[in-house]
Design a binder for these strands. Structure first.
Length: 776
RNA sequence: GCCGAAGUGGCGGAAUUGGUAGACGCGCUGGACUCAAAAUCCAGUCUGGCUUACACCAGGUGCCGGUUCGAGUCCGGCCUUCGGUACCA
């Protein structure tokens, strides 16, 4: 069912789209259903209802509710990702990536529950590392899985951020996620082995301070180099590490653990032999999975060395300290290099360059750019998703399904909870197939794709979801994309929004779109929580909009969601203030009704001269135009809460409407109706009709510009401050010359009482606003 | 842990981006209307002090410190809450 979060996303966004429509833009506002994924599958396991049945049912329920909302969606462009006409193109996309070497298989760990004999999502693993269903400790198990080479685009994904109008914080999160770092790879020989250990470091200047080497426990090399008498300890440690999540492993507060391998590595800069350890704080997935430990100048290494009694050597001298002082903690900033052979005396940041060059010359190292970003693992051992279009043949090996045989249909009959693997294994008709190359016996890949694949290109499909000559209609795509306004929660700041950017760039590279980025402008709506927690079925704190719709109607509900607070912040749900919006709507409607007949027979002028208006009229005319001026900017920037507040202010001002000339009443009401129309579309149309307009506003879009002349004011209040405290407020004609202001200020009795007998140090005048006097 | 945000009356929030803190709304209090209630309308409402009252004074935007004539806004250091952390999407 729809919950308030959906409404919060769709309602205000529809208001923005309506605003654009009224302003004369050609607006395409589609809606659809991202329908594959884990929740439907879990629901099936729990209740036995097939994911396809529950999903289709939910979609038809949700469609009805969205229609009640009054969004101006293009229902001809509706799509759902679980339809074969849609996911066929996920498969086609996969094949294009595969053809170009951007889809490949390798081993990667999954969460495995040994008792349920199934793969678990991170979400299904509790904080203590146990299975949410049975409480068994979850372990990491390696499976061969499909990856997409998003890392090939790392640099472009970084650079492209400069070209798009996205929140700075989102761009920053993507930048940090990609995590480009400039460093050096250094090779350490291993005592008694031909193989070498390559470490990645951003601090080659600290090479002389290396006192041990740490390998990620899962590195294969560990098996080869571990000395016999250390084997037992190493094996035990590797087993123990399997139950830790990555977050736990790299936590800087968790006590460091690790064991020695008994092997030694040789430092290429000084020939020193240092012990090789394994520890879980080193990850196999980042850099080379090997770290040179410099306890003197790295916090984690320092802590580790302290705990295990490994030597700590000072090779960077902190400015203002002396060489003999012992290190209390790791010093990680720039300093003077010491105990570093011929490099001693250099500034450490210069040393980075020097040492790197020398390592390159000696062929034991090279400068290297490293990314934190990893390739995109898309294999899921689940049912409710897109089948991966690959078959495995005994003689031909891994064979892609030919494009003309797509889609590989997701079979209906499966066991959602099989023992030991992907649910699709249970359907033999699906699994057993012919090899497209040799027609021999072959087996299909039984995994499905990550649903982020579905959501990485749907905006292109929206333009014509029935298009059957390709993934989407390139002509339309080039007309309409990049998307002008994309609205979604900041929980998507990195993953979805990075994947979509990657896929868009790939589609550009194969000539299907001509733009570099999918979403030109991005806005995040905030999260609506309930009692401080994200709404979710499992927590049982979901608030449904239905009852509010029934009590107040969709306009009031929509406007209340907008009035609650800043759109990008969201907030905790409460219906406390909704009656305020209800009253406002009723007052507006009553106002239009009261003036309906008069408005029909007294058409307004296009503009009024301020001089021809009396005081009440002047005030109303000004307020109307100021409101137009501000509401325009506020809606444009998704500041709906203040837009609604301004219309409330205007409605308060219009309480005097009866005191002004009839045609000015019509003038005010026309503008009010147009301004309220995007925020409360049903009310807007109703008001528009009441004042005698025959055609719908949305059929004949209209938006008024403010009369610039009405925005200026005659008088202003100048605040007088003495030593930063407000002491008087003086009403003055606008743009009164400073000398005159000064005279008036110093003539003020109150100001006199604060200034007489004091020395005036300084006077600052901010025109039409503030006169500040500093006294001593 | 790491990355990114947020914190303002009894409550949701506003503040032209360094210039009158509390717009707009809820709630509450008082009044009008009513036989009465509901609805509606009008007035008041940051806290404390002083005053018959108008006024006036002091304090006040999570905490501590700094810059400035002036800080909710800028800088440094914390605290709390929220989002993400690569298999929820």
């Amino acid at each position: 069912k729809m919950h308030i979060g959906h409404w919060y996303n769709y309602g205000p966004t529809d208001s923005w789209a309506r605003f654009k429509k009224l302003k004369g833009f050609n607006v395409f506002e589609p809606i659809g259903y991202d329908a594959f994924g884990l929740p439907a599958e879990n629901y099936a396991i729990k209740t036995g209802v097939h994911p396809q049945d529950s999903t289709l049912k939910n979609i038809s329920d949700i469609r009805e509710m969205i229609k009640q909302m009054g969004g101006m969606y293009d229902w001809d462009a509706e799509l759902m990702t679980c339809a074969p006409e849609y996911y066929k193109w996920n498969q086609w996309l996969f094949l294009q990536l595969y053809k170009r070497g951007l889809a490949y298989r390798k081993n990667a760990p999954v969460n495995w529950c040994p008792s349920c004999q199934t793969v678990l999502a991170n979400e299904q693993v509790l904080n203590d590392g146990t299975c949410e269903r049975c409480g068994t400790t979850v372990i990491q198990k390696n499976l061969t899985q499909w990856f997409l080479k998003i890392t090939n685009y790392a640099d472009e994904l970084l650079a492209g951020l400069n070209k798009i109008d996205w929140p700075e914080k989102t761009k920053l999160m993507q930048t940090n996620w990609i995590g480009k770092s400039f460093g050096t790879e250094v090779e350490f020989a291993i005592e008694g082995h031909d193989e070498k250990i390559t470490v990645f470091t951003t601090r080659p200047d600290t090479l002389f301070g290396v006192t041990y080497i740490v390998l990620a426990p899962e590195k294969e090399l560990v098996q080869q180099i571990t000395k016999a008498e250390f084997k037992a300890g190493v094996e035990k440690y590797i087993e123990a590490v399997k139950s830790f999540s990555e977050i736990e492993r790299i936590s800087t507060v968790k006590e460091k653990t690790g064991v020695p391998t008994g092997a030694f590595a040789i430092n290429p800069v000084n020939g020193e032999h240092v012990p090789i350890w394994i520890a879980d704080y080193v990850l196999a997935t980042y850099g080379t999975g090997c770290v040179m430990a410099v306890p003197g100048h790295d916090e984690r290494d320092f802590e580790f060395a302290k705990k295990f009694g490994l030597p700590i050597r000072k090779v960077i001298l902190q400015p203002g300290t002396n060489v003999e002082e012992e290190l209390e903690e790791a010093y990680t900033e720039v300093g003077t290099m010491i105990n570093s052979g011929k490099y001693s005396g250099l500034r450490s940041d210069e040393g980075i360059e020097k040492i790197s060059l020398d390592l390159e010359a000696k062929r034991v190292g090279r400068r290297k750019i490293n990314y934190r970003l990893r390739d995109w693992l898309i294999s899921r051992q689940r049912y409710w998703g897109t089948p991966i279009p690959i078959v495995y043949c005994n003689s031909c090996g891994e064979v892609p399904v030919p494009e003309d045989q797509l889609p590989v249909l997701l079979p209906y009959n499966v066991n959602f909870r099989p023992d030991g693997g992907s649910p699709l294994v249970s359907n033999h008709e699906f699994v057993n197939t012919k090899c497209p190359m040799c027609q021999g016996e072959a087996r299909r890949d039984v995994d499905t794709m990550d649903t982020f694949v579905d959501s990485s290109w749907y905006y292109l499909r929206y333009l014509n979801p029935k298009f059957n000559h390709g993934m989407f209609d390139t002509k339309l795509a080039n007309e309409w994309t990049p998307v002008d306004m994309y609205v979604g929660g900041s929980e998507h700041a990195v993953m979805h929004l990075l994947y979509a950017r990657f896929v868009h760039k790939f589609l550009r590279d194969i000539g299907l779109v001509n733009s570099d980025e999918p979403f030109q402008k991005l806005i995040h709506q905030g999260t609506i929580t309930n009692q401080g927690a994200k709404m979710s079925k499992s927590k049982g704190n979901v608030v449904e909009p239905q009852s509010f719709m029934e009590t107040y109607g969709s306009d009031v509900f929509r406007m209340y969601l907008m009035f609650m607070g800043p759109y990008e912040l969201g907030g905790d749900w409460s219906d406390k203030g909704i009656v305020g919006v209800e009253r406002f709507v009723q007052r507006v409607y009553a106002m239009f009704k009261a003036h309906a007949i008069s408005a029909k027979v007294n058409p307004p002028k296009e503009k009024y001269e301020i001089s021809e208006l009396n005081e009440v009229e002047k005030s109303i005319y000004r307020k109307v135009n100021q409101t137009i001026h501000k509401v325009d900017v506020e809606i444009e920037n998704f500041r709906f809460n203040t837009a609604v507040a301004m219309l409330m202010e205007l409605s308060n001002e219009l309480k005097n409407l009866d005191e002004c000339r009839k045609d000015l009443q019509s003038y005010s009401l026309e503008r009010f109706a147009v301004m309220i129309a995007p925020l409360a579309p049903h009310l807007g149309e109703e008001c528009w009709k009441l004042i005698g307009k025959e055609k719908s506003l949305y059929e004949n879009p209209l938006w008024f510009d403010a009369d610039e002349k009405a925005l200026s004011v005659d008088n202003t209040t100048v605040v007088v401050q003495i030593n930063g405290k407000v002491r008087a407020k003086i009403d003055l004609a606008i743009n009164t010359p400073q000398e005159n202001v000064k005279k008036i200020v110093f003539a003020d009795e109150k100001i006199k009482s604060y200034t007489t007998g004091k020395e005036i140090v300084k006077e600052i005048y901010i025109p039409n606003k503030i006169y500040t006097i500093v006294v001593k």
